[in-house]
Design a protein around this nucleic acid. Sequence first.
DNA 1: TAGAGCTTGTGAAAGGATGAACAAAGTGAA
DNA 2: TTCACTTTGTTCATCCTTTCACAAGCTCTA
Lengths: 232, 232
Amino acid sequence: MKKLSRHTICTEKKCFSAETIRRLSLYLRNLRRFKESKVEIVSSGEISKCSNVSPEQFRRDLSYFGEFGKRGVGYEIERLISELESILGIDRRWRVALVGVGSLGRALLAFEGFSKFNLKIACAFDIDSNKIGKKIYGVKIHSVENLAEVIKANDIEIAIITTLPDVAQQVADKLMGAGIKGILNFAPIALRTSDDVFISNVDMACELESLIFFVDQRRIDKKRRTGKKSEV
Amino acid sequence: MKKLSRHTICTEKKCFSAETIRRLSLYLRNLRRFKESKVEIVSSGEISKCSNVSPEQFRRDLSYFGEFGKRGVGYEIERLISELESILGIDRRWRVALVGVGSLGRALLAFEGFSKFNLKIACAFDIDSNKIGKKIYGVKIHSVENLAEVIKANDIEIAIITTLPDVAQQVADKLMGAGIKGILNFAPIALRTSDDVFISNVDMACELESLIFFVDQRRIDKKRRTGKKSEV
DNA sequence: TAGAGCTTGTGAAAGGATGAACAAAGTGAA
DNA sequence: TTCACTTTGTTCATCCTTTCACAAGCTCTA
């Protein structure tokens, strides 16, 4: 199984990690904001500041894919945006499937931001017969039973799982059987997948728990510093 | 600014990263699943397998906080669960605030899984006067104007941002002013925060774009392997 | 053209995280 | 008790990522 978070890719230039790609995505977003403000040239210092990385990090991340800046000047925003879009693969349209039309699934169907990176939820699946056949935010809900055929007919390669954790593995297996090559998983469970399928987990629980840990830690530290050395 | 994803903490034992804490959260979840299946003892091999990490990784992660296993035997699940809950700080109740009751915010209000880690959304905020004063899924919606006073009155330290990116920074500033110490940010923007506030970003866009990159890459590789060496 | 003043791209060093390997410690059978 | 077997906790070596530092290259002015 490939864990995207630890996955590394080697090009003819060097090896870079999945983390690099996530940062590229972040840079792209900030570049678009600059563009909206009619800025045309930006330096690595400026773009890295609003992305919370060092300028060197930014320059190195780009260096894996080519040379996009002008020494002594900076980066032409228009060009860098289209280069990044091309690198990330969002310069063409992607159609994705969504499985599990619960409250989170519904929220994603309503999310307009997807179009920003050329992405369209082409179809959705659920087991609830009350939902099947209906359209929600313009997306048709199919029965999970027809998953494989609908996905193949629509030539879809990427899917989003927003089911309950109990059935997430089962759904993932079905998706892989239908030829899906990338899964964005919102179910709080570590999915087992075959080697040629990429998984990206969006795990609110992990994020929240680690947040709680750090807030809690800070409180403990504070207590210790103020002298109440009761127990550690 | 502290980036949670890169933040490191030093105890009297050693230094560990925020990644370690995320994994602890994952272990905890899997341990609970084992417990539901009435398993009582588990080895590092078993627990690490379903968490997609190596057994050594699992043992090392625990070693930062103490010795919880028995050599030659394994880990007593019941005990390890309560130890992890204590380490993560979820052995006591946390009340959080949510800002931005859009479709995603609403989905989070409906999410029952929060209670699993002793977390309750105590209040929510929005600017829409149609929502203010109402209760959604049992949570009262306040005006953002009263944010500081409501948060202070409820003694809340953690907040979730589910607003549009345009106003997210503004909301974050208000939250910090009200004494919030941890923010779970769903808005696709890198927030600027003061040093003593922890930020954890749940960034669907980054995850999706990196997923697209890898799926796309795989397709390019495939094309290259099959001989069509047109362009790289 | 020459030179000062930027900013990029990248080797080299430093710093962290992961993996291999093994001592320490528990179990159970003879 | 002794011995074979199992599994943990930890040291040491390796690998990967980030930071440092600087040469290369562009612009503008005189």
